Amino acid sequence: MRIGVLDVGSNSAHLMVVDISVGEPPRPVTAVKRPTRLAEAIDARGAVGGGAVCRLVGSVGEAACAATDQGVEELIAFATSAVRDAANQDEIVARVAAATGVRLGFLSGRDEARLTFLAARAWYGWSAGRLLLVDIGGGSLEIAHGDAQEPALALSLPLGAGRLTREQLPGDPPSRKHVRRLRRRVYEELSKAAAEVAPGLDGGLPVRPVATSKTFTQLARLTGAPKRKAGPYAPRVLELERLREQIPVLASRTAARRAKLRGVSRPRAAQILAGAIVAEALMTTLKISRVDICPWAIREGLVARRLQAMSDPAAADDETARLTQAVPAPRPAGRPALRAVPQLGG
């Protein structure tokens, strides 16, 4: 079966097309990615601006056309916190559906953490033992841990890099006062979360810390990890001490100058400082000196869940079922060419 997973995030709409069969690994077919830049378009009321909504509609429409062109049989479409938490969420979803035929669904933050954990388990396998999964998105931070396929604990905190940049780091570059204030807030929030997370990490058994998301991937590259062209199997790690060295560098630069640093993309340059602050505070609070960078994340987690349901219908769950839909019929309006992006995982 050929399925598509459409992930509408704070910075981009990313469609991943894969072939899945029982007893075989997912086989990537293609991926297309279009900018949304929703994080930078959220106003003081928490609503996404009209221009960004139009950009989102266009990006989802292109993804739907790509799914049709690739012969996708099922489409799993969801939006993360930038749309889920928007004051005009209903309007956005209605406009996307009317213009493209795609019904965007939502996952709770906890379900995002669970599915991302499932992806990490699928990537590393049972030999990895207990996993501690961390993921910094645009709107939220997910944490999960456990030694099974499902995590024993899954949390979502409002500590996404885009959200914190918008709310806590005015100026380009921000002032030292604002950077200190953000660090203080993040440490306070994570100290509370650590009280819930840390007990599950005790017991003497080893724990493998793993991180997903573009934020962690770019921070790892900034601190010396291999380039993407090295492929998904090249080991990538983020070390706490090297991360700490880079935070003052990021804090002293404008977004335009950060984009010239190794591994930092232009769309994420404005929010990479907030992401680095969250990553440093998280690793310090949970006493982690390094994390492995996992190339699989929530999209692969949804694929893994769909595979489970194919082999065992009892494994089907509401979270995936409500996001799954038929690929909409092509719309007559013309569309610009799609830009294929290389696969990091698979």
Results as ranks from 00 to 15, higher is better:
V8A: 09
S10Y: 00
N11C: 07
H14E: 10
G23K: 04
G23V: 09
E24C: 05
E24M: 05
E24V: 09
R27K: 13
V32M: 03
K33E: 08
P35T: 05
P35R: 02
P35L: 00
A39W: 01
A41W: 01
I42M: 12
D43L: 10
D43F: 05
A44P: 01
G50I: 06
G51F: 00
A52K: 03
C54F: 00
S59E: 05
V60W: 02
E62P: 15
A67E: 01
A79S: 12
T80S: 08
A82P: 14
A87V: 07
R95P: 13
A99D: 02
R103K: 10
L107C: 07
R110C: 07
E112N: 06
R114N: 05
L115I: 13
T116A: 08
T116F: 00
L118W: 00
A119C: 09
R121W: 04
S127T: 09
L133P: 06
G137K: 04
G137M: 04
L141Q: 04
E142R: 11
E142D: 06
I143Y: 03
A144P: 07
A144R: 01
A144G: 09
H145Y: 12
Q149A: 10
E150D: 10
A152C: 06
L153T: 11
L155W: 03
L159S: 11
L164A: 07
L164I: 14
L164W: 02
L164C: 13
L164R: 01
T165G: 09
R166P: 15
R166Y: 03
E167P: 15
L169K: 09
P170I: 04
R183Y: 02
R184V: 10
R185A: 13
R185T: 15
L190Y: 11
A194L: 08
G200K: 11
V207H: 00
V207T: 14
R208Q: 14
R208I: 03
P209A: 13
P209T: 06
S213T: 15
K214G: 15
Q218T: 12
L219R: 02
R228Y: 07
A230F: 03
G231W: 02
P232Y: 01
P235C: 10
L243N: 11
I247R: 05
S252G: 15
A259N: 13
K260Q: 15
V264G: 14
R266H: 13
A269C: 09
A270Y: 00
I272T: 13
A274N: 03
A276T: 12
T284Y: 03
I288A: 04
S289D: 09
R290W: 00
V291H: 05
V291D: 02
D292C: 09
W296F: 09
R306D: 06
R306K: 11
R306H: 10
A309N: 04
S311R: 12
D318M: 11
A321S: 14
R322K: 12
Q325K: 10
A329I: 07
R331Y: 00
Q343E: 13
L344N: 15
G346K: 05
G346Q: 05
